[in-house]
């Protein structure tokens, strides 16, 4: 009985998501009008992850502005490494849990969480605490370790990356949230919201061999934009990223940066990072490339930013 129900649900969910794909864009387009009154970016400091998320979402018009009743949601944290939360290699599990809960409160039909990990995926899901936190509030935690989960999509606006194999869960979802952690990164200099896109694709080696900074910007041109970029800066990895060597590489900032504008979110995050370790925006080439591709602005002084201190 249970199994039958499960199949039914899966099939219906699939059908619904296929139908509402167009609606999503309509909804996203429509909400821009409402958002005129809401800030372009919200930055929160001084609270616990769940508390800061609640404040940020409230300032941005509530999660209901992004997740409609019955919609399926994918949350894409950074779960790249087999590391505990204290080491700041993966997104904060409490933040992910709180976002799952918020989506369900807004009436989401299903919330799924995945990442194409670098270390063994089961170990990453376990050690990061994200699997436990997400499952505890009813999310589905999906594998992303096999090519069969991915489908090729065109990226007409990409410069070097013209197609990419993207995880089907995110293709099928009505809404998705990009939830990176703020980290230093040996190869890409910084790993924030734009770099987090690499976890939705299968063939990452292409990125590395074809101008990493450009391909990171290219993948962000995918037409299905995240509803919000939620940058976890509760703990940041100030050096030896993206894995970190020890707990000494992590610094507690108790902060959160949320914006629809992915370039702005990353720019703000780098500015925050600079208070701990030096890192020029120019070094993080994907920011400039992204701006050129009209993904957003790095001139964040011109934006309406709401800063909240708790």
């Amino acid at each position: 009985m249970e199994r039958r129900d499960f199949i039914k649900k899966t099939v219906t969910a699939g059908a619904v998501s296929a139908l509402s794909f167009e609606q999503l864009f309509a909804a996203a387009g429509g909400s821009k009008m409402v958002m005129g009154a809401t800030p372009d970016m919200v930055a929160v400091m001084g609270g616990e992850p769940a508390q800061m998320l609640a404040k940020a979402l409230e300032a941005l018009g509530g999660v209901e502005a992004y997740v409609k009743k019955g919609q399926s949601v994918v949350i894409k944290p950074n779960i790249g490494w087999d590391k505990k939360p204290e080491l700041a290699a993966n997104t904060n599990p409490e933040l992910v849990g709180a976002l799952v809960e918020a989506c369900y409160k807004a009436g989401a039909s299903k919330v799924s969480v995945f990442d194409h990990t670098c270390d063994n995926w089961q170990k990453c899901y376990l050690s990061s605490g994200i699997e436990a936190a997400a499952k505890a509030v009813g999310a589905e935690v999906l594998p992303a370790n096999d090519e069969s989960y991915y489908t090729e999509v065109p990226l007409p606006n990409g410069i070097k990356l013209k197609t990419a194999k993207i995880h089907k869960a995110i293709l099928d979802a009505d809404v998705w949230f990009n939830v990176p952690i703020l980290k230093n990164h040996g190869g890409a200099k910084m790993s924030i919201a734009m770099k987090n896109f690499m976890g939705i694709v299968w063939d990452r080696q292409f990125f590395h061999s074809n101008d990493l900074q450009q391909t990171i910007a290219d993948i962000c041109t995918w037409s299905k934009k995240p509803a919000l970029n939620i940058v976890d800066a509760y703990r940041i990895l100030r050096k030896n990223g993206p894995q970190g060597r020890s707990i000494n590489d992590a610094t507690v900032l108790k902060s959160l940066i949320v914006s629809r504008d992915i370039v702005a979110a990353d720019t703000a995050a780098i500015k925050m990072f600079n208070q701990v370790e030096a890192m020029s925006i120019e070094q993080v080439g994907c920011i400039a490339h992204g701006e050129k591709l009209n993904l957003g602005t790095s001139q964040i002084d011109n934006l309406n930013i709401q800063r909240i201190k708790l």
């Binding site: 990164h185 890409a188 200099k189 061999s209 074809n210 990493l212 900074q213 450009q214 030896n240 060597r245």
Partner: peptide
């Protein structure tokens, strides 16, 4: 190495090293 042959950022090896035995060190420009 693509950093030499293509003149672009990579660092995938260093990224995956669990012991920091492969480190990214200044080559030229950024």
């Amino acid at each position: 190495c693509v950093v030499i042959t293509e003149g672009t950022d990579c660092g995938a090896c260093s990224e995956h090293c669990p012991t920091q035995a492969v480190r990214m060190e200044t080559y030229k420009d950024t």
